[in-house]
């Protein structure tokens, strides 16, 4: 994927989330972070959507996005098939570009 395709992927994947929250309790990171919503798969998807729309800064999302284990446990419960583990890898790519600067 090139950068444009990454943005399109993040947008279409995050828009599939219906915010039902079935993923939340299955997340080991959420469980180990005092069960705070910010550390849940649902929050990671919402924050990613917010970054793309400009309502959330990468600085505000970074801790949530980097607290994901990318274990894919949440995908098992997701009724719309949001693969948060893969979304997080590309959300990290997006954040890396913004915070660490462009590659090379």
């Amino acid at each position: 994927m090139n950068e444009e395709e990454v943005l399109a992927y993040l947008k279409s994947t995050s828009e599939k989330c219906i915010r039902c929250g079935f993923c939340v309790q299955t997340c080991p990171s959420w469980n180990s972070h005092g069960k705070l919503e910010y550390y849940s798969p649902r929050a990671r998807v919402t924050l990613t959507r917010g970054m793309l729309e400009g309502s959330v800064s990468p600085e505000d999302a970074v801790e949530s996005i980097y607290s994901c284990n990318t274990c894919r446990r949440c995908l098992v419960e997701c009724p719309t098939g949001v693969d948060t583990a893969e979304l997080v890898i590309y959300a990290r790519y997006y954040i890396n570009q913004k915070l660490a600067g462009p590659s090379k």
């Binding site: 990318t70 890898i89 959300a91 790519y93 997006y94 954040i95 890396n96 590659s103």
Partner: peptide, 8 residues
């Protein structure tokens, strides 16, 4: 990959 450095 795990840390999102896809280009690298």
């Amino acid at each position: 990959y795990e840390l999102g450095f896809i280009d690298e």
